[in-house]
Computed example of a mutant assay.
Amino acid sequence: MSQQQISLPAKLINGGLAGIVGVTCVFPIDLAKTRLQNQRQGQQVYKSMMDCLVKTVRSEGYFGMYRGAAVNLTLVTPEKAIKLAANDFFRHHLSKDGKGLTVFKEMLAGCGAGMCQVVITTPMEMLKIQLQDAGRLAAQQRKPGILAPTKLNPTNAVLSRSYTVVPSSPGTVSATQIAKDLLLKEGIRGLYKGLGATLMRDVPFSIVYFPLFANLNSLGKPSPEGAAPFYWSFVAGCAAGSTAAVVVNPCDVVKTRLQSLNKGANEETYSGVIDCVSKILRKEGPSAFLKGAGCRALVIAPLFGIAQVMYFVGVGEFILGLLQDPQSCVEISPQ
């Protein structure tokens, strides 16, 4: 397998299309995950994932489940493209003479991929979370027994360093508005709030996911030189993705809390990762770090299963007219 056979543009197309298809399929579950993770004790609006989805449809309509999807669909292409292509790039250069990679090198390649993707992931998650959580805060204000914040932002903006307020109608919040406020008040740093927590989540995720997928996928190969069937790659991607998602869920909870600019009544703010972890432990207990774990597993499993199928099918190579021979298609997880 020569280096000349690797087509980076084809890999970027494959990763981008995989991300778009996957996000479209699982975004409502991701919205439920964000809202469940942001709930505090005594202020629960939703009892479970299904309860969250049902209440969202009732109060915000069907498209309310896709609030924030535009941000994801716009940025998921470069995010997934960077993640998948970077892992493949590192694996290729860590391999020697076509020999299989050791587990350590597989983890090293995954680490590199996770570090590369946060350039896009952090601002994407920052904007997405504000839009996803707006409905929860509006519902919390309507819930009997929970007082709405009394200090209003005169500009009705969604950003304030010390206090934030969500408009009464979550539909009035836009990603463009949030991004402009962040850039004007905090510069580019504002879009990268929670970068440390994002690294804490995405690097371990990639370290767990990519080696686990490579080894699971290899079990479905008819021969060491052959390729696994697409359905096996889908199953391997689902299994590896859900496992990695649950492992890093505590980091995802911290990241979600740090990136939530809007706060409901009596919801505390956090100065950093350590402050966030200590406050969650003290006020909500260790179980709070597992909030949304089931939703996250349900999101990541099909997302990466679809991603691997799209990658192995080689849509990018077809589009670019590079797919001359099935043997020339470089897998994302070469052995």
Rank of each mutant, 00 (worst) to 15 (best):
256 T>G: 09
153 N>A: 15
265 A>K: 01
75 L>G: 05
93 H>N: 09
10 A>V: 08
249 N>R: 00
325 D>N: 15
218 S>L: 04
208 V>T: 11
255 K>F: 08
331 E>C: 03
23 V>C: 06
329 C>V: 13
101 L>Y: 09
292 G>N: 05
296 R>V: 01
99 K>N: 11
136 R>D: 08
163 Y>S: 14
16 G>F: 05
72 N>D: 15
234 F>S: 03
164 T>W: 11
127 L>Q: 04
101 L>M: 08
123 P>Q: 01
59 S>V: 08
72 N>K: 13
270 Y>N: 08
316 G>T: 05
47 K>H: 13
256 T>D: 10
307 A>M: 11
209 Y>H: 12
163 Y>P: 02
130 Q>M: 05
57 V>F: 09
275 D>W: 06
234 F>Y: 11
325 D>Q: 14
143 K>D: 10
40 R>G: 11
223 S>C: 09
116 C>P: 02
306 I>G: 01
236 A>M: 04
238 C>H: 06
331 E>H: 04
231 Y>W: 15
30 D>N: 14
26 V>C: 10
305 G>A: 03
319 I>Q: 08
204 P>Y: 03
156 N>M: 10
44 Q>W: 08
86 A>H: 05
114 G>F: 12
104 F>C: 07
311 Y>C: 01
121 T>F: 00
180 K>Q: 13
213 F>T: 00
154 P>Y: 10
159 L>R: 11
97 D>F: 05
3 Q>E: 13
223 S>H: 11
103 V>K: 05
96 K>V: 07
285 G>N: 06
126 M>T: 12
220 G>S: 07
151 K>H: 10
116 C>I: 06
176 T>C: 06
205 F>P: 07
75 L>F: 12
264 G>S: 05
73 L>T: 08
136 R>H: 11
181 D>V: 02
286 P>N: 04
